[in-house]
Design a protein around this nucleic acid. Sequence first.
DNA 1: CAATCTTGTGTGTTCGAACACAAATATAAT
DNA 2: ATTATATTTGTGTTCGAACACACAAGATTG
Lengths: 351, 351
Amino acid sequence: MEPKKNLTIKDIAKLANVSPGTVDRVIHNRGKVSDKALAKVSVVLEEIQYKPNVFAQSLKKQKSLSFSVLIPRKEDDGYWRTAHEGITRAIEDFDHFGIDVKVTSFNSKLPADFTSKANEILSESPNGLLITPIFLQESLDILKKFENAGIPYVTFNTKIPDLNPSCAIGQNLKQSGRLAANLIDHCCKQVGNLLIIHLDENPGNAPHMIQKEHGFREYFQSKNHHLEIKSIVIPHREPALINDILNKQAGDLRNVTGAFVTTAKVHLVAYPIKSRFNDCVVIGYDPTANNIDGIKSGTIDFLINQNPYMAAYEGIAKLTDLLVFGKNIDPEKLLPLDIITSENLDSYLLN
Amino acid sequence: MEPKKNLTIKDIAKLANVSPGTVDRVIHNRGKVSDKALAKVSVVLEEIQYKPNVFAQSLKKQKSLSFSVLIPRKEDDGYWRTAHEGITRAIEDFDHFGIDVKVTSFNSKLPADFTSKANEILSESPNGLLITPIFLQESLDILKKFENAGIPYVTFNTKIPDLNPSCAIGQNLKQSGRLAANLIDHCCKQVGNLLIIHLDENPGNAPHMIQKEHGFREYFQSKNHHLEIKSIVIPHREPALINDILNKQAGDLRNVTGAFVTTAKVHLVAYPIKSRFNDCVVIGYDPTANNIDGIKSGTIDFLINQNPYMAAYEGIAKLTDLLVFGKNIDPEKLLPLDIITSENLDSYLLN
DNA sequence: CAATCTTGTGTGTTCGAACACAAATATAAT
DNA sequence: ATTATATTTGTGTTCGAACACACAAGATTG
């Protein structure tokens, strides 16, 4: 009932009239305990709420726990750069819990790289894994292996069905799309035609974009908005090509009052959009260096923060909770959907 | 340079050719050490970066640290209720670090209550204090006493000049006002007249309201907005009176496109405002139960989250870092300025 | 030159949990 | 009954830091 003051194994032993060793065996069900002794100890354990002293535990076990992190290279994107920063900070913060974190980066364009690096980590059999499973099939394959090896893992950024991570860290992506729609709705008295822009990836292979688009469209359906919502896919980066594609795919569109870019690469299209469609609200993702410029100069109106920093940090924190402190952790951790404008940008940057 | 693996006191003793006891005396400068020994040990200590094993340390010291929390009663406001929840959660999370937290509540309308409760806490001389210093002069007086008693304290919600808390947790209030202005600016193509509404307190004694108003006005000044920005003070709660006051103070105002309410009590005026001024954007603070209803029903457009939950939680976390782990903590922790709409509300609620 | 005091130094115990190993008891086989 | 074997239970050591205490060497006194 009440927390009780800190009873130790010795106390329990006394209460149950057995030796500390027996209590220890019961607690860890190491067997070699008679039914009678087991019963006695169990009763006492039930009675008081025994909570082992984490300090003594960790001291003895000298868990020099090894965590592995598998994450795209920081050069691949401002998004991943920020995630790396979160990892770095977490390592600093949790250092003295005796954890040993090894970070491995892979090329976010090469599934094969992902797989080979993951296999390498598997062969080192760390005590825990934090991973960004951005490739669906590859992730499924490799993480099943980790499950079989009994290595707990935490995922972030992407959620893969049919897997059982100790914790999946991420956001509600459909809701994220709805939020973008909501902001556009707020900002335009008269909502006109709308653009959804998928940048740089094949949306068919990127479930997160689909889910965001879905949420975005759903929002306006319920509002009985009958103007056009056009999806555009721009796989290239060159500004010239971007304009070409806009001409080709949206050349005939007029009265565009909102553009929703489903990735952190929004800065690439923000200016072309703004100059083409006057007063169009531009929404994208994440305060990366380029996007911060966009927010400040006004080409981007809102950013939704996917918070790779916090996601990555939380990932290490969850592994620590699980493996160092033996806590139960929730299988899913949904991060908030932060809205960033020019005026609250700084409050998200300085930590 | 590098972190080095975990060297223990014994290792250091061996390296310096002295006994562990001497090393211990040097580390804690307990005196009784010859200059020669001191020099030898110091050299080694400098060399390797000795980091004591927190587990062994805590186990031995059996720090049953006592923290005191002084905070307004949860009945006083949804804001404080949420803060209490943050405290409760933090106590659960940090329980096994052997901290013993005592929460004391005071009536947020009675400075005398604040002072007497604070003195009571002082007489118990806890190891650390988390406090919401909402009364300027009283807080200054009492916290100076804590400083003299050598009891470290963390403040949240309000920042008091001339004090040196171990950490001040809060938000940039001026920026918070600017953000509100920014949102209104975004939502109205044609910004009309604007209202600033201070509810339920005497703004003269509530510096936070002043700072918010200041930021709000500053934003529009830089935009060369020449319409009227009118401040209204409504000290009462009764809906009837609210309408009276609105009639009296803003009866002649037309074309009001935005209302900024500087506290969590925004739900009290949201409906009167919305029905009086069509399409007026209403912005207030904090997702309290009543405000959540307002957001959902559409009488409130945006809430800025002051995040009492996280502020309170962080307060306990900071004290723990400081006193349990002996970490250095930043003297100021600015929380982000979250924008809440109907579509990201949930993501802030479930934790 | 002993007796006493000062300072410096080393040793030993403690915290609570984990686990190895020894001791005690129970069960089986001869 | 007696040795052999399995099962259960108890004891002791370890982790690293903190601190009490004992002992050593040097300084001071009568």
